[in-house]
């Protein structure tokens, strides 16, 4: 970004190029952004103040939907499920990803073979490119109660007592989805962290090693502090993704059994298209948007403050 601030005079030196004409290039993008994002977003906020079932025009009812939202235990439960999603999509993958990336980079890549490290990284990344509908099918039958691979494996090693209807019982359904999401997510932090580590001079690790620092000490002193910006980016993007998660819930459990795996986005979807309570669905969606935006602002500010502290 430092190069972004080019000196003023060089800009003026591009002869005959007034700044105003560049606006023309922004017109298609701005029109599309307005039509597809800005207008629908405000429209959705408006709908949250109406009663609307999709057929007759929306009726303004003021804050009624919002009052209902705060009383709605199903809504709060869906947000609690989001916390499980944050653990599964942010905390665990980032933690595991940090350890894996640093093991691969510091030990496997440096002491064995860079090719092996690259191959392992590719395997970790594979679930990331897996479309969620496919991942759900794979996981769906692995976790099937009667002839699924997991229960089969458990009985093969003599742990029949642990066999379970993983996605079909309320006590394990959410955790099973969580486990699937950990599997899907790990590749992302590993790949980002490993490319961030490229920036660190390998001699730093060499020097630390000669000074007797063990792997964990090197991990804390060099890896963690060296790639902090990337950790921030990964945590932010994954948190936002975790709050918005829809596909895995829809394809694996459709929110069930009961309401045990309903998340806000799935709740919105069913309000829109199943219950036909569009106004209330819009209210949930608006609430979710506010939370997502607040978290994004919080992260970006925290990151700025940290960067300032380091400079000072």
């Amino acid at each position: 970004m430092t190069k972004g601030q080019a000196p003023e005079r060089s800009r003026a030196a591009v002869k005959g190029q007034s700044q105003a004409g560049y606006w023309l290039y922004l017109i298609p993008g701005a029109v599309l952004l307005t039509a597809i994002i800005v207008v629908p977003l405000f429209w959705n906020v408006y709908l949250s103040f109406t009663r609307y079932r999709g057929i007759r025009p929306p009726v303004w009812i003021g804050l009624e939907n919002w009052q209902e939202l705060f009383r709605d235990s199903a809504f709060w439960a869906s947000f609690q499920h989001s916390i499980v999603m944050v653990v599964a999509m942010v905390i665990l993958p980032t933690g595991i990803g940090l350890i894996l990336a640093s093991l691969l980079f510091d030990l496997v890549g440096r002491r064995f073979n860079g090719k092996v490290a690259g191959l392992l990284r590719a395997v970790y990344y594979l679930p990331q490119i897996l479309p969620i509908a496919i991942a759900a099918i794979v996981v769906g039958w692995i976790l099937r109660p009667e002839d699924g691979a997991l229960n089969d494996l458990l009985s093969a090693v003599g742990l029949e007592s642990l066999q379970h209807n993983w996605l079909g019982s309320p006590d394990t359904a959410l955790l099973s989805i969580g486990a699937v999401l950990v599997w899907i997510q790990i590749g992302y932090p590993v790949v980002v962290f490993m490319s961030a580590l490229q920036r660190i001079d390998p001699q730093l690790y060499e020097a630390a090693e000669l000074d007797g620092a063990n792997w964990f000490q090197r991990f804390r002193a060099i890896t963690l502090s060296g790639i902090r910006p990337e950790i921030f980016v990964v945590v932010l993007t994954c948190t936002v993704a975790a709050l918005k998660v829809f596909g895995p819930v829809y394809t694996l459990t459709r929110g069930g059994p009961g309401d045990s795996t309903v998340v806000p986005s799935y709740y919105t979807y069913t309000e829109f298209f199943t219950a036909q309570r569009v106004g209330y669905g819009a209210t949930i969606a608006t609430a979710l948007t506010v939370v997502v935006l607040l978290i994004a602002v919080f992260f970006v500010r925290a990151q700025f403050r940290l960067a300032e502290q380091e400079e000072a």
């Binding site: 994002i37 207008v39 959705n44 969606a285 997502v292 935006l293």
Partner: peptide, 18 residues
């Protein structure tokens, strides 16, 4: 504004777009 477009949940655009 463009950055917001990448962050906003798709659910919040869904019904108006529909």
């Amino acid at each position: 504004a463009f950055l917001l477009a990448t962050i906003v949940p798709q659910e919040a655009l869904l019904y108006p777009l529909y």
